[in-house]
Nucleic acid binder design. Structure first.
Lengths: 255, 255
DNA sequence: GCATGTGTTAACGTATACATTAATAAATAC
DNA sequence: GTATTTATTAATGTATACGTTAACACATGC
């Protein structure tokens, strides 16, 4: 796969990045003792680097040396190295000796891979949720997310819609009670997060999407695992296909 | 989940472990410069520790300090720490400060979680393989694995059967071409490897299992993704259920 | 100009030093 | 004897030191 185009939104993003670099706010956030839990420095480094990637403050292709990260985060190289092992294992960055850490772009092919996995895991989660059933509260949470998507669409609030959509999917997975599956799904949501964020306004208005969500919730409510699994699978296949088409249509080879 | 029983096979395993501890073979293996690739010390530590876990040389519940591992592997603590981060992220061990690394037992509930995930991912892999098709060579490899399972069963060679079974499943996943999915499946195979190994002679002779494999291969060969996915899914649900029942029947709460 | 060789240097990879503190041992109180 | 407090110590977590060597800069040859 030849790298033909890397999306950077350079001027805006670079500026925000430098601005944040100048401020001590996020450095302090990485360094502060949390009042409830004292986080180790590797944990802090991991969280802060990841936050910057997810929020596109470190866009794909960003290269930083261990020593630069250590300076940025006001700690020695050791905890930075430990954090990078974790981030590297999660597919968020690659680590090349003497070149440092590079934030991994997400290609069209990457997205296909990721969505194939999410399709499988989320569908299985829907099946499991339908088998074990939901409490009234859990059902209420799912339904609330669906309602919020509707409301966001009425207001043309795409960001609101995306947040509620994410919440719906992640709640669904969490309710299946399989911690490993939930962690896996979170990992792949993280890997694909920036693509969804950056393509949010390039996609058609997600009008029919919530019909799918409602159908999945209804299948779950009547404890029909096969239907829940299939409906969610179809939904996931549709949204995955659409996202890939957007990447292709706009020539976004690496985000 | 209260820990009521931890399988140790203590006398045999302990003995082998100590014997191996005494020899310098595996230490040298971890230390030797490979003639093709010079492995970093964290990589070596990771591989050697993992090998010992998978081969039950470090059985579940084994506790070792960083310094002990460093001595064992003839290196300093730093690469050991780095290896443990990876192993911990893969769910093979847990790391507790001042208690060291502990090889994680795999409970009945863990196995249910793991098999739910494998069911989802392998079924998706079967779907993808059927869509993209197989080369003659790939088809030959799958068929060879199935044939070897048959032959192993004729000879009552359970180990041979298990190896061929593993090869079948992992090839199937590899042929779908999704590297992330393959890596995930490998991780969960690793987590459940010792349970399969240790229950191999407790299970009924896997007579009908290969019928399932053949049916999956046939569906793939005629490029029928829905059939491939469903057949493999049913196969996986069966084998997962059976394995869990064995754990329950023999009171194996943690392996 | 391009290709090749040599020298320099800095980014690791790894070992070691040091500060922190959780866990354990010992002392004390009842 | 049991419960509580205090002292000790060793296992981290983290920083730093040092050796290795890949990457780069510069020189040389064609």
């Amino acid at each position: 796969m030849q790298q033909t185009k890397t999306v950077r939104f350079a001027s805006t993003t670079r500026k925000l990045f430098e601005s944040k670099n100048m401020s001590s706010e996020s450095v302090q956030a990485a360094r502060n003792t949390d009042t409830k839990i004292k986080l180790s420095l590797p944990d802090r480094a991991y969280r802060e680097i990841k936050r910057r990637i997810l929020e596109n403050e470190m866009p794909s292709g960003t290269i930083m040396l261990e020593s630069e990260l250590a300076d940025l985060l006001d700690m020695s190289r050791t905890p930075v190295r430990e954090a990078l092992i974790r981030l590297s294992n999660e597919g968020m960055v690659e680590v090349r000796p003497r070149h440092g850490m590079r934030v991994l772009p997400v290609s069209r092919d990457d997205m296909i891979e990721i969505y194939d996995i999410l399709t499988a895991l989320e569908s299985e989660a829907a099946d499991l949720v339908a088998r074990r059933g939901l409490s009234e509260q859990q059902l209420g949470q799912l339904t609330a997310a669906v309602d919020e998507m509707d409301q966001a669409l009425e207001k043309d609030d795409l960001t609101g819609w995306a947040n509620a959509d994410e919440r719906f999917h992640l709640l669904l997975v969490e309710f299946c009670g399989n911690k490993r599956l939930t962690n896996m799904v979170n990992t792949f949501w993280d890997q694909s997060h920036r693509v969804r964020l950056l393509t949010l306004r390039l996609r058609p208005k997600p009008s029919g999407s919530n019909d799918d969500h409602r159908a999945v919730v209804a299948a779950i409510a009547r404890n029909d695992p096969d239907a829940a699994r299939d409906l969610h699978r179809q939904h996931r296949l549709k949204s995955g296909t659409m996202l890939v088409e957007i990447l292709e249509k706009h020539g976004l080879s690496n985000v």
